[in-house]
Design a protein around this nucleic acid. Structure first.
Length: 298
DNA sequence: ACCGGTCCCTGTTAGC
DNA sequence: TGCTAACAGGGACCGG
């Protein structure tokens, strides 16, 4: 699942291998892949044709290419991939190919998305609320309108940690819900939320307004650390011509402490990791290291 | 403004 | 063996 480290790996790949190449043809294979583009598939294709992306920017799980005075926004959802291919690198076409951009040097950028929660759209840029650059890789204080409500992420140098800690403690909800709220802090999904909570020894249902400042700092630091580690692992694994979300992280096999590890012994105390239902999804905890609070919130 | 529940979508897997 | 149901989950949206 693409969370912050995977999306940043894709952003870096686009930065190094796509910028400066002109789009010469656009094929939308599935209209709903551009459902958030106001003019529909034909307008999407016509607008992009002949244009050249000049920067690749990311905030949280949103990614965008700056193109003239607008942004080509991408969200990968659960299964989206952006694949940069060179001329002649045809191979078998994915049955989940949604959008194909052909480039002036004979190469192409493919958007492939099995579960279709991802999308592409050309959107206008609006000023950021704090006047600082819009995201990772940004030089200007603007973001696409679709991203205006998304908070800065934990790896953003313009993020205000003290303000974030205070904002978390003002919430009246459970800590995992808060970590997953992209309007509070972005980039964290189910995997990194569970990993961060295990590291910080906090149960997912701990009410945010009972957390002490150091506890909030600990879980945020943990989330940043685990995402940096995943980024370091994933950033080395794709070559110059292939940007692959799923292939990007060799991290999952080796380093996950709780996510998907139900039944395995906790590395700290040996208690079996448990998987529990949470928000119509799942939460993975060590029941010993992360005891359930008496008055938990979900 | 905040909070929590529902739904979107498709391939895989579990269970009867 | 063959069907159905559950499951994976980010985020828009809506009602309270």
């Amino acid at each position: 699942m693409p969370e912050l480290p995977e999306v940043e790996t894709v952003r870096d790949g686009l930065d190094r291998h796509l910028l400066g190449r002109t789009i010469v043809e656009v094929e939308v294979r599935r209209d709903s892949a551009v459902r958030r583009h106001d003019g529909g598939p034909d307008d999407f294709a016509a607008w992009l044709t002949g244009r050249t992306p000049r920067a690749a920017v990311r905030r949280g799980k949103y990614l965008w290419l700056l193109v003239d005075d607008s942004a080509l926004v991408a969200h990968l959802g659960m299964s989206g991939q952006l694949l940069v291919r060179a001329r002649g690198d045809e191979g078998a076409e994915s049955p989940h190919l949604r959008v194909r951009l052909r480039l002036d040097d004979g190469g192409r950028l493919d958007f492939v998305d099995q579960r279709t929660f991802g999308h592409l759209a050309v959107r206008p840029l609006v000023p950021t609320s704090d006047g600082a650059p819009g995201g990772h890789g940004a030089a200007d204080a603007v973001v696409p309108d679709l991203v205006a409500h998304i908070a800065r992420d934990l790896l953003d140098p313009h993020g205000d940690r003290a303000a974030l800690v205070a904002a978390v403690r003002r919430r009246r909800t459970g800590i995992k819900r808060a970590l997953l709220d992209q309007g509070l802090v972005s980039g964290i999904g189910n995997i990194y939320a569970d990993e961060a909570l295990w590291r910080a020894r906090l149960h997912y249902a701990r009410p945010t307004d009972t957390l002490h400042r150091p506890e909030v700092e600990r879980v945020l630091d943990s989330a940043a650390e685990v995402m940096r580690a995943a980024l370091a692992a994933g950033g080395t694994s794709f070559d110059a011509l292939y940007v692959n979300v799923n292939g990007a992280s060799g991290y999952f096999d080796r380093s996950l402490e709780v996510y998907g590890q139900q039944g395995r012994a906790c590395r700290r105390c040996g208690t079996p990791i448990r998987r529990e239902a949470f928000m119509n999804r799942s939460a993975h905890i060590c029941p010993h290291c992360q005891p359930r609070p008496r008055h938990g919130r979900y």
